[in-house]
Amino acid sequence: MVTVKLYASLRLNPEEKEFTSAAATVEEALEEAARRYGPAFKERLKHATVLVNGRHTAHLNRKKIRLQPGDTISLFPPLAGG
């Protein structure tokens, strides 16, 4: 199982900050998240930053990133600050 963590405006349900998933790839995990939280979430996923164990994945083929048990996927909207 892997953990999918949600942050900032991607936490549509404030009570649910993360969920566990049996997804085998990052793409599968993202599809599962989209099904779970609906169209508003899917819309926000369009510009989300997807990290696997702290590493950015936008430049990688997410269908081919095989997940290992214990991996963490973190989903962030575009953040700003400093």
Partner: peptide, 24 residues
């Protein structure tokens, strides 16, 4: 803009805590 129009007003600059934590 998603950064200046939503994230900063809603969560402030401290929204960086979690992503900085994730990226060491």
């Amino acid at each position: 803009h998603p950064a200046t129009g939503e994230q900063l007003p809603r969560f402030g600059t401290a929204a960086f805590v979690n992503i900085c934590n994730a990226t060491h």
